[in-house]
Design a protein around this nucleic acid. Structure first.
Length: 423
RNA sequence: GCGAGUGUAGCUCAGUUGGUUAGAGCACCAGAUUGUGGUUCUGGAAGUCGCGGGUUCGAGUCCCGUCAUUCGCCCCA
């Protein structure tokens, strides 16, 4: 939309304005996230939006710097708008590592920024719900985090027939690569190369693996790994893999929570971020029409990179942009407006204003939300304005009502009126 | 960073090979109905055609630039 016509101002590229009508969905989403997190015992935390560039570099690598909004402050410090919450979490936990009791479960809704071309489902700014469990090595952590996210999805009306959680395990991929004698040092490069499958040509992926030090034979073996589509295929190759046993246990725990039917093993889920080491997951809509709704996995070395003690954790990031698209596509009637305010009060003349204020204050003290007119209105205008769905009830005061000491409160949906006393 | 499309009233959009004063529907405001709203009728207001430059006797229309936006690619939350 064009912005201010005289000066041509609009929100900068990729940044969003939230008008009151936009806040309805956003607040519902945020409330749902917070309720689910509290329901599962996650503690809220928050942090500054500006981070030191060095912290982000150390975690994400030099090459990511041109995708970050960064700048120098007046003392020449290199700072950045956070592109994700995990480095900040690592910094905060590391600072109190000696005193925090583990495992810890924290959550936050963080606005994150990223400087890149905008496209469907991707802005330069978004809100991301972050769930993290630190200090629990068992798959109970993965299952608990996913159960929390699934709970939020259910509250939003997104059922198992609309969305599936695709999962894989980097540890399992490592076990598979070991069986074909590819050294462990080369695994991370292979993961990052294979993660690009479907995004860049296969030849380019093979080229990436060659650059990572794999010969033709090893590259072919890495490719063959992806031909396995089911856990049974994998089981035949590495029947004794500890990572496979973990996945079996993971599925069992998820079944106890009751959402195992939403899970789907998927060798192509690898995740682009370098720090994942174990189970990884991404949630997609059934039609695969949209980008991932949420994603995450287990990381083991997050704190050691910034000087802390080793601590295993599981994290999940759930953005506000894609889920809004999914809700609009799968639940099209969800956006219908509903009353935002209990009662509207209007009056005919200035001389009824004080009575209107008294009534408004009385109803407010009883807990109703009340929108009282700030100026006199003709009755037709008042009822036209208030009858558009924003209010449940309306009271209109005129001279006769003040004389009688009572007024009629109207239920706007049923158009029925009941008497209330003015006192 | 690369490629393509779009930009006309609050919204959705018409607008002929360049031709006088730029239109429609919905929404809005007023009246019919001077104390009661979702349907009806009548009337009204509202646009520097994203912005800037160029070509032309003349530009919403053609050209260049710029900003915003959408969709791909790179990349990834």
């Amino acid at each position: 939309m064009p912005g201010n016509k005289e000066q041509g101002f609009s929100a900068p590229r990729g940044m969003r304005d939230f008008y009151p009508e936009d806040m309805a969905l956003r607040n519902r989403l945020f409330d749902t996230w917070r309720q689910a997190a509290e329901n599962f015992g996650f503690k809220p935390y928050d942090a500054c939006v500006v981070e030191s560039l060095e912290l982000l570099k150390r975690k994400s690598g030099e090459e990511i710097v041109d995708q970050i909004y960064h700048f120098k402050d007046k003392s020449n410090r290199d700072l950045a708008l956070r592109p994700e919450m995990t480095p900040t979490l690592a910094r905060m936990v590391s600072a109190r590592q000696g005193t925090l009791s583990l495992p810890l479960k924290w959550h936050t809704i963080a606005q994150c920024f990223r400087y890149e071309r905008t496209t469907r489902g991707r802005k330069r700014e978004h809100y991301q719900w972050n769930l993290d469990i630190l200090g629990e090595p068992s798959v109970a952590a993965e299952a608990e985090i996913l159960a929390t996210a699934v709970s939020a999805l259910e509250k939003l009306g997104i059922t198992g027939t609309m969305l599936r959680i695709h999962f894989n395990s980097r540890a399992l991929l490592s076990d598979l690569l070991k069986t074909v004698d590819i050294s462990e040092a080369k695994h991370p490069a292979i993961f990052l190369a294979l993660d690009k499958r479907g995004k860049i040509p296969d030849e380019a992926i093979s080229e990436l693996m060659h650059k990572a030090g794999l010969n033709d034979d090893e590259t072919a073996k890495a490719w063959r790994m992806l031909d396995m589509h089911t856990l049974d295929d994998v089981r035949q190759t590495v029947p004794d893999s500890p990572a496979l046993a973990q996945l079996d246990e993971f599925i069992r725990v998820c079944a106890s929570y009751g959402f195992a039917d939403r899970l789907m093993f998927d060798m192509s889920v690898i995740r682009g971020l370098a720090y994942y080491t174990g189970i990884v997951f991404e949630a997609f809509d059934i039609k695969r029409e949209f980008r991932a709704v949420f994603g995450g996995g287990r990381y083991d070395n997050l704190l050691t990179e910034i000087g802390g003690q080793p601590l295993s954790g599981v994290g999940l990031g759930f953005g506000d942009v894609v889920i809004a698209e999914i809700i609009n596509a799968y639940l099209p009637n969800d956006g219908e407006s509903r009353p935002e305010c209990d009662t509207a009060i209007g009056y005919m003349e200035e001389s009824q204003r004080s009575a209107a204020i008294l009534l408004a204050q009385k109803l407010r003290s009883e807990g109703d939300s009340v929108d009282m007119a700030l100026a006199p209105e003709k009755p037709k205008k008042f009822f036209t304005r208030t009858g558009r769905g924003s209010y449940q009830k309306a009271v209109y005061l005129g001279p006769d009502d003040i004389e009688r000491g009572s007024a009629r409160i109207k239920d706007l949906a049923s158009r029925t009126e009941t008497e209330i006393t003015l006192s």
